[in-house]
Each structure stands twice: as structure tokens, then as C-alpha cells.
Amino acid sequence: MSLPPLSVPADPNPYRVTDRKLLYDSPWIRLREDRAEHRAGGRCLYAVCGFRRTACGVLALDAQDRVVLVGQWRYPLEAYTWELPEGGGEAHESPFESIRRELAEEAGLVAATWEPLAFFHTSNSSTDEETFLFLASDLGPSDGRHGPEDTEELTCRREPFEQCVARVLSGEITDSLTVVALLALKARRDGAAGVLDPVLAERFFQRPDRHPSAGRARWDNLEPS
């Protein structure tokens, strides 16, 4: 079912930027500070975090409808979490190329059947990160050429799909990519009829520089506007 787009105001951007300053830059993230004036009269200081890599995840299902989960210690949280195979795609890779590699590295698996599942922004109040989630099935062992990085210590397990959904609703599984992927597939199975826009679906198989968002493109021009 195709729905009409939600309306957008004629003049949606209420900010006039007076200054932009780059504070930090690394191969993974960059941070800047913007000073802006709101048309309602207020002034604000806005910190923006930019992600250089594309967030990708895969809900991989085996023939018994079990989800492939990866357990690892998440440094910022200081907690151990269970989540889908996921990672950051390089600029020269499409999300599809990135997540195929991650599935092999983190779970030692390949999949014969792939399809786009969901697209979202992980935290749009402070970052420009874009996330591409895939559904994969017809699993088999990888060729062993890819493995975890030397800064990773991973554990793999398979959990029935409905149990994974229950763990999301109980608050046990909290990783955002995993939560969105599981609930998206649950909604689809329960009859939700949403379909990804064909242009958006193509982006799952294209390099990021083929479709830079306005927010991500901003890093190439930090002049006030």
C-alpha cells in the first residue's frame, strides 16, 4: 500500500546560522559547534555529531526461524549487550556490501537471500547517522576469510524470533538497530502493509556518495548560512 507523503511546512527551517566551528575530527566521527538564531527570537548553541560511516545491520533468520544474535561488551554503555550483526560501512561501500562483510566477520555466515527491511536515523537531535537494515535468510557458513577485528570479542547464539521480540518489549534487548529490525519484521508479519519507497530501496545497494543527505553534505561547507 502506497501512502501519500506527510506534509512539510512551506518554510520549514527556522534557524539562521551565524557561526560553525569544527571541534573534533577522526576516521569515525566528527563534532562541530553551531551558533544560530531562531526566528521566534531565541539564540542557541548546537552541537552536531557527524558519522563518517554508514550504520548497517542484518536480521538473519535460519530455517527454524531463529535470529542470529551477537553478544559483546559495549564500551560507552559499560554493559554487555545482545544485538544483530552490524557495523559501519566505508565510503566506498554500499550498505549491502558492508553488511555482507559484517555477517561473515561477526557470525561466520553468508546468506543467499537478502532484502531491505527498514531505514531510519538513530538520533536525529544530535547526529546525522543513517541506518540501513536488511533481512537475510538461506544461511550457510562463510569461507572463513573474514573474522572479528583485534579489538572485538564476540559471542554468537540463535534465538527464536518471537522470543527476541519479547526481549525487546521487556527491555532486555536495547540496541537500536536490533529493536527496529525486530519490530519492523514483527509488524510485517502481523499485517502492516508499508513498502519502502523504490528510490530509498535502491540506496541500500548504492555507495553513500550517490545520495548525500543535506545534513551529511553540510560537512563540506561549514560557512554560516
Results as ranks from 00 to 15, higher is better:
E106I: 04
A107S: 14
A107L: 05
G108L: 04
G108I: 05
G108P: 04
L109R: 03
V110G: 03
A111P: 05
A111H: 04
A112T: 12
A112E: 15
A112Q: 14
A112V: 03
A112H: 14
A112M: 11
T113D: 15
T113S: 15
T113P: 02
E115V: 05
E115F: 11
E115T: 13
P116R: 09
P116N: 08
P116E: 09
L117H: 07
A118G: 00
A118T: 02
A118W: 06
A118D: 14
A118M: 06
F119I: 02
F119A: 10
F119T: 03
H121R: 15
H121G: 09
T122M: 05
T122N: 04
T122Y: 01
S123V: 06
S123P: 00
N124F: 14
N124S: 12
S125A: 12
S125T: 15
S126D: 00
S126T: 06
T127Y: 07
T127C: 08
T127P: 09
D128G: 00
E129V: 09
E129Y: 02
E130I: 08
E130D: 13
T131H: 03
T131R: 01
T131W: 00
T131D: 00
F132C: 00
L133D: 00
L133S: 05
L133Y: 03
F134W: 04
F134D: 00
F134Y: 11
F134G: 01
F134V: 03
L135T: 03
L135C: 05
L135G: 05
L135S: 10
A136C: 08
S137F: 07
S137D: 12
S137L: 10
S137E: 12
D138W: 08
D138L: 08
L139Y: 07
L139V: 11
L139D: 09
G140W: 08
G140K: 11
G140P: 04
S142T: 11
S142K: 05
S142M: 06
D143C: 10
G144N: 11
G144F: 09
G144L: 08
R145W: 06
R145A: 15
H146F: 14
H146K: 12
G147H: 15
